[in-house]
Write a protein that binds this DNA or RNA. Structure first.
Lengths: 213, 213
DNA sequence: GTCAGTATGTGCTGGATTTCAAAAAGTCAA
DNA sequence: TTGACTTTTTGAAATCCAGCACATACTGAC
């Protein structure tokens, strides 16, 4: 399903809506109002409605939005029909944490391989994901049609890993190292920088503190 | 040092500028041009100059910006004078990864305590950070004047931890769980959602792929 | 001393995103 | 049947942010 030019921010929120919706699905409710979703995510109801408008979903005036239908529609838009395979490179604490987080999170996204250089980790299975030596990365990515790579190695090695990924045909990279990477335009790159985030929190915490005094 | 209403994005970039500057400080250089910084971070030189303009720093026309001075100025703006203390709650893989990442990253931000419920972890020191039982959280936060909390526990426990943090007087929270939290307005909350990030990468990777075919 | 060259500082434009505000529509009660 | 109430839908305004393009300023060559 195509929607032309969905804003980046909207895509992010759709992912969050879906998660929020899945959480309330159990609670015997079948419909939900925009303000309920908004409250869960700390945004405005207008924002929610606008996003749903962009993906062309209409709610019921009296009952709100049909939860099941909406979950399904979001899936049609942000998931790929045939699913996408993911590889994690770097099986240190961070790599392991990532794998644990995604475990059992259904969705069309599956982490199916991990890579590391530490011989003790090679050929072992962590949380259902097999770990291989980095030298095999290109082959395994190609053979298994892996389209997404997560970089969780020490910073210095990140550029090299990224390059290998690109050459192996990866289409999207999530980079957890603070090192900015260079990739060609046909590869989507998302930087996920913990240090910057923490410093940002520190800054606004300080500012808030002064303001509310 | 106050600058009124620095945009969020600028704050993020300042943190990145500082890191980049620290990396080149060693290289016997004393000055740097906007286009050099820009290249390192994959942004435009104009953007860099604009940000520096916002914080009121002027470069030397012929030599560029004084690296040391600039690092110091950024510190004055985004760091707190007296430094800020940080606590990590949840010492699983993610918690450990976070601590490792920040280790030795100087700056006025120091992780000085960790909390968990697992008896095997309590009273042990991980990467220089002592781990205590969660029940001691309030006391230790207050005693040590910790102002920033990082939540790295399983999702279900996140709301409770957040509440405890707020009551203990924390001013900023970085939440690594996918569970949106509720905090009063005087506490700054940053959500750091891996699942959303990965789904976003998946979406744009898919889209890119179609576009470049 | 003049001129070419390069880098900074910044008003202004454009694009993306959010919010406002009003229109439309369904439901309940009397 | 009418009217009050609530919620969605959506055009339009407001805001935020990035990038262009030019004015400005310094340096070095000749």
């Amino acid at each position: 399903m195509f929607i032309k030019n969905l804003p980046h921010k909207t895509v992010e929120r759709l992912s969050q809506y879906r998660r929020a919706l899945l959480m309330i699905l159990s609670k015997e409710k079948t419909h939900v109002f925009s303000h309920e979703i908004a409250q869960m995510l700390h945004i405005t109801p207008v924002q929610v409605r606008r996003d749903l408008m962009l993906i062309g979903y209409s709610g019921n005036l009296r009952k709100g939005y049909d939860i099941k239908e909406l979950i399904e529609l979001i899936g049609k838009i942000i998931d790929s029909d045939r699913g996408q395979r993911v590889a994690v490179v770097g099986l240190g604490n961070l790599g392991k944490a990532i794998i644990s987080y995604f475990k059992g999170k259904r969705s069309k996204l599956a982490i199916i391989a991990a890579f590391d250089v530490n011989p003790e980790k090679i050929n072992r299975v962590y949380d259902g994901v097999a770990c291989h030596h980095i030298s095999q990365m290109t082959d395994i990515i190609k053979q298994n049609n892996i389209s997404i790579g997560i970089i969780a190695v020490p910073s210095e090695q990140a550029p090299e890993i990224a390059e290998t990924m690109v050459l192996a045909g990866i289409k999207g990279i999530l980079n957890f190292t603070p090192k900015p990477l260079n990739v060609p335009p046909f590869v989507y790159l998302e930087e996920y920088d913990m240090i910057t985030s923490l410093e940002k929190v520190a800054f606004f915490a300080k500012k808030n503190d002064e303001r509310f005094k």
